[in-house]
């Protein structure tokens, strides 16, 4: 039948179009699924401790002391800002690094962050951080996936009919059984 031919063409070509986005959403999906306090899917966060010269008694922290701390840590990144978190702790913000200094002891805790190459960008798209135009593209992709499912369903016939029915039923039953079990 003629409609079966068009159904096959639609299924095939939509499938081709969806490959890139499906891989992005699949990889990002696994990463985002495992977000926790110890795993950020988009950034590498490294914490380390060090000690620098303490602030001299009676002195207020100033730019000279900030420069001294950065020099002792060998930090050459772009300086962003500095803030006093409380009377005894100063936080220095460097591009990709924040440095907490306990003024009385010189104890330092550094938190270095870096984007996970590839994963940051995939999560950016998957989580739709861009909004605007990406919302439209993501909606089109969702419709395309729906079409892929419907055209796939219409291809269940012939010698693979039983296999198609079984696998399709299993795919539909899995979320339903899960919801039945947990809700």
């Amino acid at each position: 039948m003629r409609w079966r031919k068009w159904n096959f063409i639609l299924h095939r070509d939509i499938g081709y179009l969806c490959i890139g986005l499906t891989l992005i959403y699949a990889i990002s999906g696994v990463a985002v699924n495992h977000t926790s306090h110890s795993f950020n899917p988009s950034y590498t966060i490294e914490k380390s401790a060090a000690t620098v010269s303490k602030l001299e008694d009676g002195k207020q922290p100033d730019r000279e002391y900030v420069n001294q701390v950065l020099a002792e840590l060998g930090e050459t990144g772009t300086f962003k800002n500095v803030a006093m978190l409380n009377p005894s702790t100063m936080r220095i913000f460097i591009e990709g690094n924040s440095i907490d200094v306990t003024l009385a002891t010189g104890a330092v805790i550094q938190e270095k962050i870096a984007r996970k190459p590839g994963l940051f960008e995939m999560n950016y798209l998957h989580l739709n951080k861009h909004k605007k135009s990406w919302t439209l593209i993501a909606d089109i992709y969702a419709i395309a996936l729906g079409l892929l499912a419907v055209t796939g369903l219409l291809m269940i016939r012939g010698k693979n009919k039983l296999r198609g029915i079984l696998f399709t039923s299993a795919g539909i039953a899995l979320p339903l059984l899960f919801l039945f079990a947990v809700l």
């Binding site: 950020n40 962003k80 800002n81 913000f93 962050i113």
Partner: peptide, 24 residues
């Protein structure tokens, strides 16, 4: 005012503050 702050909370996913924003 020194040592004071305020928290800004958003619905998860609606807005995502980037880690690089610290210090800005």
């Amino acid at each position: 005012v020194p040592f004071e702050k305020i928290q800004v909370k958003v619905v998860d996913g609606e807005i995502v503050f980037p880690m690089e924003a610290k210090g800005r």
